[in-house]
């Protein structure tokens, strides 16, 4: 079953519906990777609330999706790992490196917004984050300047319209 992907502001939200087959996962990985490039998403939320089991295969796959997205410049947050599932994952010694985790969508968005703000402050010291702090967690705040604008600001590179991989030094 294909995984629906929703675009919300700078982020993508993928809701895993049931157990994923290898093909579904390959598709999800390619889809997310493609859209991260197309929409310049800085964060991807993978909602696994519907998964009753996260075994070693699922863990390895989620990990590989997150690693791929990291190389594309987006940070991944996994949402909705059930308590029982988390318990079994701990027993099995299954971990997810370089991946954020949140209890629900709202927390995940807040997590990504915070991350974004921190990165932004590090990168563009001379541009203030006007109003960024007062926004509700549920609604991702628009960037003060468009991504393309910021880029030009920094490195004067002409940007082509289509999705080209961002340079890694701008990743995390």
């Amino acid at each position: 079953m294909q995984v629906p992907i929703l675009k919300q502001g700078n982020y993508l939200i993928a809701s895993v519906q049931s157990a994923l087959s290898d093909d579904d996962l390959r598709l999800l990985r390619a889809d997310l990777s493609d859209r991260v490039g197309r929409f310049r998403s800085t964060g991807v939320i993978i909602d696994v609330t519907a998964l009753d089991v996260i075994d070693s295969f699922a863990t390895r796959t989620l990990q590989s999706v997150a690693q791929m997205l990291k190389l594309r410049g987006a940070y991944t947050v996994i949402v909705g790992i059930r308590p029982d599932v988390a318990f079994v994952m701990v027993q099995l010694g299954l971990t997810l490196a370089d991946v954020g985790a949140a209890l629900d969508l709202e927390e995940a968005l807040a997590n990504l917004n915070l991350r974004r703000r921190n990165l932004h402050e590090h990168r563009v010291m001379h541009i203030g984050e006007a109003g960024g702090g007062s926004r509700a967690a549920g609604a991702p705040s628009p960037p003060p300047l468009s991504r393309a604008h910021r880029r030009r600001d920094k490195d004067e590179q002409p940007r082509s319209g289509h999705a080209s991989p961002r340079s890694v030094e701008h990743g995390r």
């Binding site: 009753d52 089991v53 059930r82 308590p83 029982d84 318990f87 079994v88 027993q91 099995l92």
Partner: peptide, 21 residues
């Protein structure tokens, strides 16, 4: 009970995955 169900389902998943893989 609930958490045992997840334990059992995960064990079945691993072992069935081994068959397939």
């Amino acid at each position: 009970d609930g958490s045992e169900l997840t334990v059992i389902a995960t064990a079945i998943s691993e072992i069935a995955r081994n068959i397939l893989e």
